[in-house]
Measured scan of single mutants.
Amino acid sequence: MFKRLMMVALLVIAPLSAATAADQTNPYKLMDEAAQKTFDRLKNEQPQIRANPDYLRTIVDQELLPYVQVKYAGALVLGQYYKSATPAQREAYFAAFREYLKQAYGQALAMYHGQTYQIAPEQPLGDKTIVPIRVTIIDPNGRPPVRLDFQWRKNSQTGNWQAYDMIAEGVSMITTKQNEWGTLLRTKGIDGLTAQLKSISQQKITLEEKK
């Protein structure tokens, strides 16, 4: 169930391209415009997507990853294993993690069937560096609404905000991946996880038929 919630949630996290980005210092504006741009692209490019579902990787690479804190999220997933990894191991892992996100997020976007969304009203940021933004996803086919909290983090150097995690039903996506990959990290280390991520990233994206 959580895996499905995570995939549905990713439908609204794909941010804007650099040329049309919203105010990078306001995570609420980023979330709002990102959702609108993403849904528009999914709707307008269905012919290309249906002809070649792996085209979704391109959308992810162009529109999402430049505005997601990939390395920060990847380091959180590694936890204690990050500090013990060599620079070469980290570089290989982050490259594999990025390719994994292209496949995983692309597969999530393949679930698009006309969903709509509501974003919580903007709250004062103050001096906060981590801000959760509640998004409610509404399914046109009558499924119950899904309420999610996207975690946005302020870059201490640039002042810009980027998304790095999502919490559904009190469970963090980062925590879920830590639990899912924990045994592999304990037995085969970061190299074993890197190899698995490379394998997963090679899987073809498949479209979910409308139910």
Rank of each mutant, 00 (worst) to 15 (best):
A85D: 04
E208P: 14
L42Q: 12
I119F: 09
Q69E: 01
L109P: 02
L207K: 15
N160V: 11
K211E: 09
P145I: 05
P121F: 14
D61V: 04
S84N: 07
Q36N: 13
M1V: 02
E63Q: 04
P87T: 12
A195E: 11
Q107C: 10
P27T: 07
Y82R: 01
A14Y: 08
Q62E: 15
S17T: 13
T129M: 10
T187N: 12
I190S: 10
H113N: 11
K43Y: 09
A22S: 11
A95D: 08
L207Q: 07
T86I: 06
L109I: 05
Y164V: 05
A96R: 04
V70R: 03
I190K: 01
Y117F: 12
K198Y: 13
P140G: 13
A18G: 13
Y81K: 11
A21V: 10
M7I: 11
K210E: 12
A168H: 01
A75L: 02
L65Q: 11
Q162E: 05
Q46T: 07
L64N: 00
I174F: 08
R186D: 00
T194W: 03
T116S: 12
S156Q: 03
L11N: 00
S172H: 00
E180S: 04
N44E: 15
N52Y: 10
Y67M: 10
A85R: 03
S156P: 03
G170K: 00
V171I: 11
K37E: 06
P144D: 03
V135Y: 03
S172V: 04
I138C: 15
P87R: 07
A22P: 10
S84T: 11
G170W: 04
S17M: 15
A95P: 13
L64P: 00
T25W: 13
R153D: 01
R41I: 03
P47W: 11
P87L: 10
A108Q: 05
Y164G: 01
E209K: 09
N160Q: 11
T194D: 08
N52Q: 11
Q162Y: 05
A168L: 15
A14S: 13
Y93F: 10
T86W: 02
M166L: 09
D61W: 02
Q69C: 01
G106V: 11
R143C: 05
I119T: 13
Q151T: 05
N160I: 10
E169N: 06
I59Q: 06
Q151L: 05
S172G: 07
Y164W: 02
T136F: 12
R143G: 08
I119M: 05
T20D: 11
I13W: 12
T58Q: 05
L193K: 01
I130C: 03
A22T: 11
K43P: 04
P124E: 11
R41S: 06
V146M: 09
P144A: 09
Q118M: 12
I200R: 05
L64T: 05
A19L: 02
G142D: 05
L185E: 11
P47T: 13
L197D: 02
T206D: 14
L184K: 06
A9S: 04
K37C: 04
N155T: 01
W152T: 06
N26P: 06
M111Q: 05
T158K: 07
E99R: 03
D32N: 08
N141A: 08
S201Q: 15
